[in-house]
């Protein structure tokens, strides 16, 4: 046994490609599965949320403007970085929530899920586009385009795979996002932000907040510059609040609270399509 003292990590918010403390300087304590103090996490404020949304908006056009090929490579790079930190995530998951065996399979599945979506970026548009045989002399086609800025409310269980399963299809489709992580597993979200940061994902494409969900979701769902909200938190009251606030600017709302992300099948291009808009273009055919 070494007498060496471990160096602990300071967990921060991840906004616009930078790790920063909450502007409020408020914190809360995360506990491990034995209810012992695990880390002090930033208690993200409404102002932090607004900053994150602003960063996401700023990054959106550029991210959507990347080629599908490039976005695929960057998602694959995320998988590479996660693979490199496999042991760290297994240890953190085991410490925070689950058995070692379960932690191992969760990390493996999370890596594979990123690879899965990396491969979709340049395929889903072809699958879900159409050339429409209109009965007039026009060329008419429909293609998917990203919805824009997506607010993601992370589930309380499946700390890593849940988060990855929500973020990957959203960004694969050219959206940017603001993630409100689970109170229970904020530290895993912080470490995932480090993976994202080192994966060539442009700053602002994924923003990760820790904090109290109840303080943040109504503002996330009510913000006029967020186009869509996705929640996997199983909380009927918060679902209602999200939907009520979403009406302010006709946000697209999706609830994935009944999905078991540990299932192999909990991945498909339809998750990408939930955050796509269909644009139809007409042009006359003439001489």
């Amino acid at each position: 046994m070494s007498n060496r003292l471990n160096v602990l990590k300071t967990c921060k918010l991840y906004i616009g490609g930078k790790f920063s403390r909450s502007e409020s300087e408020h914190y809360f304590q995360a506990l491990d599965k034995k209810q012992k103090p695990l880390a002090n996490l930033c208690r993200g404020s409404r102002k932090d949320l607004r900053n994150a949304i602003q960063a996401a908006r700023k990054a959106q056009a550029g991210w959507a403007g990347r080629t599908a090929y490039n976005r695929g490579q960057i998602l694959y790079r995320m998988a590479e970085m996660l693979e490199g930190r496999r042991d760290q995530f297994v240890a953190e998951l085991e410490n925070a929530a689950v058995t070692r065996r379960r932690a191992e399979s969760e990390v493996e599945l999370a890596i594979d899920r990123l690879v899965h979506y990396a491969g979709w970026t340049d395929k889903y548009p072809a699958l879900f586009s159409s050339v429409n045989p209109v009965a007039s002399p026009h060329f008419n086609f429909s293609i998917p385009e990203p919805t824009g800025v997506v607010g993601i409310v992370a589930p309380d269980d499946n700390a890593l795979i849940g988060l990855v399963s929500l973020i990957a299809p959203v960004i694969a489709g050219g959206n940017t996002c603001v993630v409100v992580s689970s109170e229970k597993h904020g530290s895993i979200a912080c470490t995932l932000a480090e993976v994202i940061h080192s994966s060539d994902v442009p700053g602002g494409v994924v923003n990760v907040l820790t904090g109290f969900r109840a303080e943040l979701v109504s503002h996330l769902a009510g913000h006029m510059d967020v186009n869509s909200v996705l929640s996997a938190a199983n909380d009927p009251e918060q679902k209602k609040i999200i939907q009520e606030n979403a009406h302010l600017n006709v946000k697209r709302v999706h609830f994935y609270d009944a999905t078991d992300w540990m299932k192999e099948q909990a991945q498909s291009p339809y998750y990408i399509m939930d955050f796509q808009e269909i644009k139809t273009t007409w042009h006359p055919v003439g001489t």
């Binding site: 159409s130 429409n132 045989p133 209109v134 009965a135 007039s136 026009h138 008419n140 429909s142 269909i278 139809t280 007409w282 042009h283 006359p284």
Partner: peptide
């Protein structure tokens, strides 16, 4: 063109 509609066109 403008204001064209068709059942095949979303």
């Amino acid at each position: 063109t403008f204001n064209k509609f068709d059942p095949t066109s979303p």
